[in-house]
Simulated scan of single mutants.
Amino acid sequence: MPPAKKRPRTYDPSRTRAAVLAQLGNVRAGVAGLSEVQLAGATRLAGWSVRELVAHIGMAVTAVHRALELPEPPRADAVLLDWPFATVDSAPAIDGFTRDLVKRHPDLGVYLAGVERSLPELLDSHPGSRLLQTNAGALSLADYLVTRTVELVVHTDDLNAAVPGLDIPYDRQALAAATRLLADALAVKAPGGATEVRIPPYAVVQCVEGPRHTRGTPPNVVETDPLTWLRLATGRVSWGHALGEAKVAASGERADLGALLPVMS
């Protein structure tokens, strides 16, 4: 008998909405006091200053606005886990759009405040089932909001890395959703049950071809914390560096994930 097909993870729409709004609020408050010198500082995203990064965060959220302005697609032709693998093709357009935003919004505080004010009003006007045309295909609004947690949390981490002492907090639900989505994406990229990847307290996934364990301690185990996982999954940190810094514990002959990372870029 073939193994039962795993059901895709589901996300509570109300909790996702609250997470997106909370993390957007965290970012807006965190960058409000940045000086011009700080905004001009470099980030770990090649070619982007802190100013571009902040503008991009606003752009990532207002992708919801832009999608809702378009006609609703006739049917869903994508699933949530298609999204992490579709972002790389959009990189050049995203870079150009971000730089244009910086020119059009010299006061980023005002810009983010406007985004924070308009998003809940927009979400109140549309059901979560409303389909949106996204870079991954036609997804529901509820699913697309899950992808916004990845954008917000990953780029919050980029900001904190770029500005010493900034320490923008991470909404727990936003961090959980982002962690789970990219962990599930790894399981899609490397299907199997030979390796167990643990990211406490938010996710455990089975991946990598090979003998599947059914009970007891798995022979191949990888464990890390949520932020390290997000950095690995998005290419902010290499597998070798994370191992060398003891940010990842890996045991077993199929526990080397280096060739599978990043999951998205």
Rank of each mutant, 00 (worst) to 15 (best):
A138P: 04
A136D: 05
L122F: 06
A60M: 08
A76G: 07
T134I: 11
L70W: 12
R148C: 00
L123Q: 06
N135T: 15
L119C: 06
R75D: 14
H65T: 15
D100T: 14
D82R: 05
Y111F: 12
L68W: 07
R75G: 07
E121M: 13
D107Q: 08
T98Q: 06
L119R: 03
L112R: 03
D124H: 09
F97N: 09
L159S: 01
A93F: 10
V115A: 03
N135S: 12
A93R: 15
V79C: 09
P73G: 08
L122E: 12
N160M: 04
A138R: 08
G114K: 07
D143K: 05
R130A: 11
P71I: 12
D95L: 07
N160T: 14
V79P: 00
L145W: 02
G165E: 10
V64K: 02
Y111S: 02
S118R: 15
A161Y: 01
V115Q: 04
D82N: 14
L159K: 02
A63G: 10
L145I: 08
E69G: 14
F85L: 11
S118D: 15
L101E: 14
L108C: 03
V153E: 00
A136K: 02
N160C: 04
P73T: 14
I168A: 01
V61W: 02
T156W: 00
A113L: 11
V153A: 00
L132H: 04
P120Y: 10
L68C: 05
D124L: 14
V61E: 02
E116R: 11
V61G: 00
F97K: 15
H155E: 01
P73K: 10
S90G: 05
L108E: 09
R104W: 05
R130L: 10
L119Y: 03
P169M: 09
A91D: 15
N160A: 02
G114V: 13
V61N: 01
V153F: 00
S118E: 15
R104V: 06
A113V: 12
L139I: 13
L112N: 03
H155W: 00
V150F: 04
